[in-house]
Computed example of a mutant assay.
Amino acid sequence: MATSNNWTKEQAKLAFHLYCQLPFGKLHKGNREVIRLAQAIGRTPSAVAMKLVNFASLDPAITSTGRKGLDGASSLDREVWAEFHSDWERLAVECEMLRREIDPTQIADEADELLVPEDFIGETRRVVTEQRIKQSFFRRAVLSSYGGRCCMSGVSESRLLIASHIVPWCKDKQNRLNPSNGLCLSAIHDRAFDKGLITLSDDFKVIVSEVLKRREDVLVQTVFLPLDGRAIALPERFAPDPVFIARHRSEEFVDNRKAA
């Protein structure tokens, strides 16, 4: 990809795409993915790392804690930030396809979930590929934001972690891939949240349903009841949107559904 002193919009999009998927503490020039993107777009690792930190300076979840990045975000950075937030699905797929185009060797390094069976052809192959790209982007963005730990239990075994949607996938197409519509949860906490057996308050404290409180199961008593009223661990970036939290509480939480 040809380059000049000024970043192109495509380069900035690819940088933001990577920013979303790397833990905040790994936005540096020595990171393997930073180096690889820099080589692909004709920039130095230092320049790419600086661009990532500039994007961090636009993230309220980061700036609210006093970590202001380099305060060097450009008008192009702001434009890319806004464009992603208005259409996560399109841009996640667009950037992944562009990344593969400029760095074909990276396809061999993809995780198994991105691989599509060889007997899938044509439109079916395209749809499955895009679906897996979207799932992978959302998972990486959410898990990296939460430091690879369940925000309720602290579990850090990646094979037990789910990038859980706050507002269900089927109910809000625009925010399906929005990391602020995600929580990093263990499989059992994800299941309980998905079924509306637990939810969150406006100040991000766990609310356990009366359904669970009435259960005498040892697992419920030891895993879920101690969470009631406890604040979740908030992510380093892409904090859960209070609007999505309120929707989950009003539309998915079983206590409120019964009352309705």
Rank of each mutant, 00 (worst) to 15 (best):
Q11S: 04
L14R: 00
A15Q: 07
H17K: 10
H17Q: 11
H17W: 12
L18N: 01
L18D: 00
Y19F: 15
Y19R: 09
Y19I: 05
Y19K: 06
C20N: 05
Q21V: 04
L22M: 06
P23M: 06
F24L: 14
F24Y: 15
F24W: 13
F24M: 10
G25C: 10
K26H: 13
N31Q: 12
N31W: 04
R32N: 11
E33W: 14
I35H: 12
I35W: 02
R36I: 08
R36P: 02
Q39Y: 13
G42R: 13
T44H: 10
A47Y: 00
A47W: 00
V48P: 00
A49W: 02
A49T: 10
M50F: 07
K51D: 05
L52C: 05
V53F: 06
V53C: 10
F55W: 08
F55E: 00
L58V: 11
A61N: 09
I62T: 07
T63S: 03
T65I: 09
T65V: 12
G69Y: 10
G69S: 05
L70C: 15
D71G: 15
L76F: 10
E79W: 09
E79R: 12
V80P: 01
W81E: 01
W81S: 06
W81M: 06
A82E: 07
F84H: 02
F84S: 00
H85N: 15
H85A: 08
S86W: 07
D87M: 06
E89F: 11
L91N: 14
A92I: 01
V93F: 01
C95Y: 00
E96G: 00
E96Y: 08
E96Q: 09
M97N: 15
M97P: 00
I102E: 04
T105F: 03
Q106G: 01
Q106R: 12
I107G: 11
I107T: 13
E110S: 12
A111V: 13
D112P: 02
E113Y: 08
L114R: 13
P117W: 04
E118F: 04
D119R: 15
F120H: 14
I121A: 12
I121C: 06
E123T: 14
T124S: 09
R125G: 11
R125L: 07
R126I: 14
V127P: 00
V128D: 10
Q131P: 01
Q131H: 11
I133A: 10
K134W: 04
